[in-house]
Design a protein around this nucleic acid. Structure first.
Lengths: 108, 108
DNA sequence: TAGAATACCTTGCAATACAAGATATAAAAA
DNA sequence: TTTTTATATCTTGTATTGCAAGGTATTCTA
């Protein structure tokens, strides 16, 4: 297993959380979200992001609006809903607990 | 998505790490590993653990020995290999980086 | 002798992330 | 004008993972 796979395996399961974190501050379109994730050293590709955003939208966590762009095709700006904010709070708690669990396991 | 699913989704990807953490301290058989995970609030079931241990053994990260038990059937004690310890170091680094990335995303 | 407790393992399913490729718009270059 | 480049969106197929459910085997106890 290459080092890359180690990191990519660990990313599984927290991407939903990451998306909600980003959109909790301001609306964004997919490519911009990918750029933000990269800036935080979370490498994610398009084939991962698009289905994920659609899933979260279908769950009512996100909504979106189209906006024209002078740089190319129109952009789909996603923004978080009230339900999404509740979910984010739950995820904050879950993340804290996970970090705590790993801490217990790692340091005896 | 129920609160349980939020936590279970986040657990994905760190179970390999958890197993190596536990076995880095002392050898153990599957049921004992599950008990340790439960003690750290990481709920995992047999159907998850057995295939996972077999995978890690096939990757050369673990090895095992049989030991008779007076309480029932013989136990398969797994222990970490040198390769497993290297892997654990990589996972420590990956975990630290992941926590760091989430921190960046969450706190602006 | 039957049941309970302990331990191992497998099968089939659903969900996730990724690689690869398809489609569409607008600007720039030929 | 036509082609290329850049920017966007999205889909399809695949591998992996974790889980629910069920199956097998050993030892002790009632």
């Amino acid at each position: 297993m290459a080092e890359d796979n180690v990191r990519s395996q660990m990313r599984k399961g927290v991407l939903d959380y990451c998306i909600l974190c980003i959109l909790s501050r301001k609306e964004a379109y997919a490519s911009a979200i990918i750029d933000e994730l990269k800036a935080a050293d979370m490498i994610v590709v398009e084939g991962t992001i698009y289905p994920l955003l659609i899933r979260q939208k279908n769950q009512g966590l996100l909504s979106y609006r189209w906006e024209e762009s002078t740089q190319g095709p129109p952009r789909k700006y996603y923004f978080i809903t009230e339900k999404g904010r509740s979910q984010l709070e739950e995820m904050d708690a879950a993340w804290t607990e996970l970090v705590d669990s790993i801490g217990k396991l790692r340091n005896q």
